[in-house]
Design a protein around this nucleic acid. Structure first.
Length: 935
DNA sequence: GACATCACG
DNA sequence: GACGTACGTGATGTCC
């Protein structure tokens, strides 16, 4: 440090406003991506060009002797402690810009220019402090920026330079801009405020008026003290009323010239870049032109950049960094943890994984947290592991040694996990976010490798970590079973010895980070960034909240129904044994089949592929027309289903703490974009039979509330009408006609006023069949008509609506060509089986026809759900459940109508503005004390 | 753990 | 010309 000459007279410091460079570069260039992997790189390219042009231009007597690029540190600054709304209305950095922030630091260092940022301060403060130091030492300083907030620093050897316009700004320039000299800029800004930074200022006073006042009264303090003297009554009152706010504003705009810096002016001395380092960086970024140009100037050989690197989509390249579970570290004190937090700040991202005592997010305890910022470098923070059970079979409740306190760790992690400038990366973020939420941490923003995979590869494979790691990293992770065991002897994670836990948990974070690095650029390449960012990622907090809120279920209602079912079933069982002439297990399809088709020798029995007699409901229904036995079996089966799956099982899912049922939605469960619901499944609660529907009476609103249900009417048919472009159908929807009756009328030439329910029913079956990729066989079975007749129906339908056949043929052809189909919103559903030969071919083709329709409907309700929390935030209403085309809310009695109105608008307009459908979306609403009434 | 059955959209 | 099919899910019980 002592080698450099002292900064003083004759020295000239240049300070570059790094953030301004980045944003200017970002907006000036198209969204370039790195050829080999699609990493967004446009802002870095522009940044490097600007930096290079700047260095090139620094010749002659006025060249700087010292230089630094100053960046804003991610996260909040001390100004947020003064005013929590400071810069609060600033939108987050664009998605494709964020990963470029750290790269611009790397670029600065590659050019061998000092690169500075300090936590808790803005770049402007560092610039202010350095400028003052330079001035005090008798040297000069040029600030390369056009930010008006820096103009207060101008004067006495400090100037600004607008690099784009190549215009210097001195004291006169400041007067031109603010109407006052640099020393009064702060006063003017305090009065005028700043909408960009959300500095309030004095209402109704702009720069012009502010300058007028300051020039008249000398300075801000005098002005405020003598505010009574102001002639204009309104202006006078404003200043008197808002004195505190104006003084706060002054604090906000006043830059800190006296920061403690851990580097000296001397350390910023201009140095030549190291050609090798610079070349390596530029080549790594694949900047072909710039690399060549700078290589020539430096007189070195330009490194070769492969023209078209092989697409790295599937298996990992063999030369990738191997996994080494022994390299992972165990973090057990605050100092070590703080280092990891610092790494996250530096990088702007961090992969996080939580370990818990089980899978039920509402009940389990946090056991530890693993982190990873750089591939191959991961740690585990054990928090509540229990002491080993060396000779005590039951283990111990005492905490194991070598762990930091849970609260201490969370206190350190919370600001980072909530920092808007740091992306937290998870595999299945919803799980971890719910856990963190229970510990008072609201994690944001996030990325989720599971959802990225789903957006890119739905239909190709599942999206669990094991599958993804195997497929994309060629690595088999440690199996959780080897740590926990299986079945009855399985232990919970808090009983796992620390050294094993570190390897397993840290590896998961490492895998997550590596998957993210691999997937991120692929999202662009596969053109699903919008799907991921608008239809997948924003749902994580929405679903988390719905799941955590849960739905109130009345245990007594269920319990009474269970008892009633049990009684009836016992009666049916006795009857059935009597009829069979022997006791048998009514729940065994094999035994029922034997009795029906062997003992009773009934006709029409078919066998399943395993050789058993097949006894599904439709077969038994046919037999029930003539025999009591199959009719009774059906009765029994219905009650058995209701009891075991619903009235019994649902009670076990009532959370002991909340008294409510908390389902879990799987965002990646259905390939079409639908959600699935599990533990328990609340998307298949009975409704079609009277008996079953009564189960919904147990789903109730809390005291003083109502349940409301809003469902899309015929959404899939509407989408079909739009996509296939069927004018008659579209018009019918626009006119609000009964679509099935209309179809029947068109097909069978029956006037609407002479429509019979049976003809309408047949048309309805055809309409549904079309959505499913109609076949004569399927329609025949559904309508119980001969196959030839079904084929006639279908032919007539296609004749009447030729657009439908075109849509089906086009969709099939598209799928065969591309191996995927698409929704209106760009969601891709892969169809790897579409070109299969043989009997399976039909399956894939029908799925291909159905997927765009079902998927588009799923996209639309997803869009509604993403917008819903903001829309209802001021209403006493909560969104509880989603059942594919229906949303259920719990709402205070006095806000029922308002909520319906708001939620309906959101749902009906959910396709817009992305898509303007040719058909209206209609949402029906129901209200009740329970779900049966509301539906 | 595979299979059959049945609940939903 | 025969093959065997409606599309998408999850939970439960039997049986091996």
């Amino acid at each position: 440090m002592g080698e450099q000459a002292k900064f003083g007279k004759g020295c000239h410091l240049h300070l570059i406003d790094g953030s301004a460079f980045i944003f200017r570069a970002y907006h000036a260039l198209p969204p370039l991506t790195r050829k080999s992997d699609g990493l967004p790189i446009g802002a870095v390219a522009g940044f490097c060009n600007m930096l290079h042009r700047y260095v090139e231009g620094n010749t002659g007597p006025d060249a700087p002797t010292h230089v630094a690029v100053i960046f804003d540190h991610s996260g909040k600054s001390f100004r947020n402690d003064l005013y929590d709304q400071y810069k609060a209305n600033r939108p987050p950095a664009p998605e494709d810009l964020r990963p470029q922030f750290p790269l611009t630091r790397d670029a600065t260092r590659a050019f061998n220019i000092a690169c500075k940022e300090i936590e808790g301060f803005e770049a402007d403060d560092i610039i202010a402090t350095l400028a003052c130091q330079a001035r005090d030492a008798g040297g000069r300083c040029t600030i390369i920026s056009s930010d008006k907030d820096l103009m207060q620093l101008v004067g006495d050897g400090v100037e600004m330079l607008d690099a784009m316009k190549n215009k210097r700004i001195d004291s006169d320039g400041v007067v031109e801009k603010f109407g006052v000299g640099p020393d009064r800029v702060v006063d003017v800004q305090a009065l005028a405020g700043d909408s960009v930074d959300n500095v309030p200022g004095a209402p109704g006073i702009g720069v012009k008026t502010a300058a007028l006042l300051i020039n008249e009264y000398g300075d801000l303090t005098s002005l405020l003290d003598r505010a009574e003297e102001i002639k204009q009554p309104k202006r006078r009152q404003t200043l008197i009323d808002n004195r505190a706010q104006i003084e706060l504003s002054r604090q906000l705009v006043q830059l800190d010239c006296e920061m403690e810096l851990d580097f000296s002016l001397e350390s910023l001395e201009v140095q030549d870049p190291d050609p090798e380092t610079l070349m390596h960086f530029l080549a790594d970024m694949e900047f072909r032109t710039l690399t060549k140009r700078i290589a020539e100037q430096l007189g070195v050989e330009a490194p070769v950049i492969a023209e078209a690197a092989p697409a790295k989509t599937e298996a990992a390249a063999p030369d990738e960094l191997p996994f080494d579970v022994d390299s992972y570290t165990c973090v057990s004190d605050a100092a070590a943890l703080n280092e990891w937090v610092a790494k996250a700040h530096k990088r702007g991202w961090i992969a996080v994984d939580t370990e818990t005592t089980g899978l039920n997010e509402m009940q389990v305890d946090l056991v530890g947290i693993s982190l990873c910022v750089e591939a191959g470098e991961a740690c585990y923070i054990p928090l509540t592991h229990k002491k080993g059970a060396s000779d005590d079979l039951f283990g111990s409740d005492d905490l194991a040694e070598g762990q930091m306190g849970l609260n201490e760790a969370l206190d350190i992690l919370k600001p980072m996990l909530e920092d808007p400038a740091i992306i937290k990366i998870f595999q299945n973020a919803k799980y971890d976010c719910k856990i963190f939420k229970r510990y008072g941490v609201s994690v944001a923003p996030i990325d989720d490798t599971m959802l990225m995979s789903y957006a890119m590869n739905a239909g190709e494979h599942n999206h669990g970590m094991d599958v993804l790691s195997e497929r994309y990293l060629s690595h088999n992770p440690i199996s959780i079973k080897t740590l926990l065991g299986t079945g009855k002897s399985a232990i919970t994670f808090d009983k796992v010895p620390l050294e094993d836990a570190v390897k397993y948990a840290a590896e998961d974070a490492d895998i997550t980070l590596r998957l993210w690095q691999k997937f991120k650029p692929q999202l662009h390449q596969k053109q699903v960034t919008t799907v991921y960012e608008t239809l997948e990622r924003p749902l994580v907090p929405v679903l988390s909240e719905m799941e955590m809120h849960g739905v109130l279920v009345d245990r007594d209602t269920l319990s009474r129904m269970s008892n009633s079912f049990a009684q009836k079933m016992a009666g049916f069982e006795a009857e059935l044994h009597e009829m069979a002439g022997k006791p048998f297990n009514v729940q065994s399809p094999a035994q029922v089949g034997q009795i029906l088709f062997e003992d009773m020798a009934l006709e029409g029995g078919k066998k399943t592929k395993t050789g058993q007699w097949s006894t599904p409901a439709d077969v038994l229904e046919d037999l029930a027309a003539t025999h009591d036995f199959p009719a009774r079996v059906l009765d029994y089966r219905q009650l058995q289903k209701l009891k075991s799956t619903y009235t019994d099982a649902l009670q076990d899912h009532i959370d002991p703490d909340t008294g409510r049922v908390h389902t879990s939605y799987s965002q990646t469960g259905a390939n079409t974009g639908r959600f699935s619901s599990n533990d328990p499944n609340l998307q298949n609660i009975p409704v079609r039979t009277e008996e079953g529907r009564r189960i919904r009476e147990a789903f109730v609103a809390a005291e003083g509330n109502k349940l409301i249900s809003l469902d899309y009417s015929q959404i899939e048919l509407r989408i079909l009408a739009h996509i296939a472009g069927i004018d008659t159908l579209k018009q019918a929807f626009r006119d609000g006609h009964d679509i099935h009756a209309m179809t029947a009328s068109e097909m069978f030439d029956v006037p609407l006023d002479q429509m019979t329910p049976d003809v309408r029913r047949q048309a309805k079956a055809i309409n549904f069949g079309v959505i499913y990729g109609i076949s004569a066989f399927g329609l025949a079975r559904n309508l119980r008509i001969p196959r030839g007749e079904a084929q006639d129906f279908i032919n007539r339908y296609f004749e009447r609506f030729p657009g439908i056949r075109t849509y089906m043929d086009d969709t099939k052809a598209f799928a065969k060509e591309n191996l995927y189909v698409q929704t209106l919103f760009g969601r891709k559903i892969h169809m790897p089986q579409i070109n299969a030969k043989g009997p399976h071919a039909g399956f894939a083709q029908r799925a291909a026809i159905n997927a765009p329709i079902q998927g588009t409907a799923a996209d639309i309700i997803r869009r509604a759900m993403v917008r819903m929390p903001e829309a209802i935030k001021d209403l006493p209403a909560k969104m509880l459940l989603q059942v594919h085309d229906e949303l259920i809310f719990e709402v205070s009695e006095d806000a029922v109508e308002d909520t319906i109105s708001v939620a309906r608008d959101i749902m009906q307009g959910a396709a817009e503005p992305a898509i303007k459908l040719d058909v209206p979306l209609v949402v029906d609403a129901g209200i009740g004390d329970n779900w049966a009434e509301a539906h």
